[in-house]
């Protein structure tokens, strides 16, 4: 009697645990995770490096989940325990243009070393005048601070329709205007513009900043290259994150 009771007890104890024994499926595609480390550098609207790169929010968007973190004052950020996958990264800080990066591969294992990312302050400078004559574009600006930069990047929108909006622009040209004798100007080639000689063409522009490398002084000198733009596949164009609002409209007569 006692023996049978014990047998039943043993079976009762052992039985539920047999399935738990080594029948766990082999991991053919292991669920790897890993950290990802990167750096964000902040610049003013003219591309001058700032001292403090803290509080930039980085969001990593995966297929199932989103992860976020912030930079420290050196611009360093770390995403911890990120599963293997391809991510979309967003970089945001109030007052700065928002940068995105698509198709970022993270394999897991040892930490992934991400690129350097550059964010620029939204421009406070305004365009007070814009003219095109003799194959040259001239710009006049109102700078909020004393500083007069060596150059300014302009995205110029063209249309034959007065008061046109950015969305309905007929032609776009990007030009870096340089300071020369107290004025900002640059040569401009309108060969491919869809306008006729003698036609009145209206223009307006936005200011943006471009910078793809910077020399860091970290106690030693280190020149790094960084990502400052991204290609938007839906809009089919390169996005300059700190592109300002458009200026007033100006006009010129399209040359012969």
């Amino acid at each position: 009697m006692k023996f049978r009771k014990n047998t039943i007890l043993y079976l009762f104890l052992l039985f539920p645990f047999f399935p738990l024994g080594c029948t766990e499926e082999e991991e053919y595609l292991p669920g790897l995770t890993g950290d990802a480390v990167g750096y964000v550098y902040l610049f003013d609207e003219f591309g001058n490096l700032l001292d403090d790169h803290s509080n930039v929010k980085i969001t990593a968007i995966g297929t199932r989940k989103q992860y976020d973190t912030y930079t420290d004052s050196k611009g360093r950020f770390e995403l911890k325990g990120l599963p293997t996958g391809t991510y979309e990264l967003h970089f945001e800080k109030a007052g700065f243009g928002r940068l995105k990066q698509f198709g970022v591969k993270h394999l897991g294992g040892k930490p992934t070393l991400l690129a350097n990312y550059f964010l620029f302050k939204m421009p406070a400078t305004t365009i007070t005048n814009l003219t095109i004559e003799n194959d040259t574009v001239y710009g006049e600006f109102l700078f909020i601070f004393q500083e007069q930069p060596y150059s300014l990047f302009l995205r110029i929108y063209f249309s034959t329709v007065p008061g046109f909006s950015r969305e309905s622009t007929q032609y776009i040209m990007d030009r870096e205007l340089r300071q020369y004798d107290g004025r900002y100007l640059r040569s401009i080639n309108l060969e491919h513009a869809p306008f006729s000689p003698g036609e009145e063409v209206f223009i307006m522009a936005s200011i943006y900043t471009r910078r793809t490398s910077v020399k860091l002084d970290l106690g030693f000198s280190m020149t790094i290259s960084g990502i400052d733009t991204y290609f938007d596949y839906e809009l089919n164009q390169t996005i300059y994150p700190n592109l300002s609002n458009v200026s007033d409209h100006f006009s010129f007569i399209f040359p012969e």
């Binding site: 043993y10 104890l13 052992l14 047999f18 738990l20 080594c22 766990e24 991991e27 669920g31």
Partner: peptide
């Protein structure tokens, strides 16, 4: 029997993932 029970439940530690 008790010891056998312990061995069975504790023997399946997770190894390093294998590619």
């Amino acid at each position: 029997a008790g010891i056998a029970w312990i061995i069975l439940t504790c023997s399946c530690t997770k190894d390093d993932p294998q590619p």
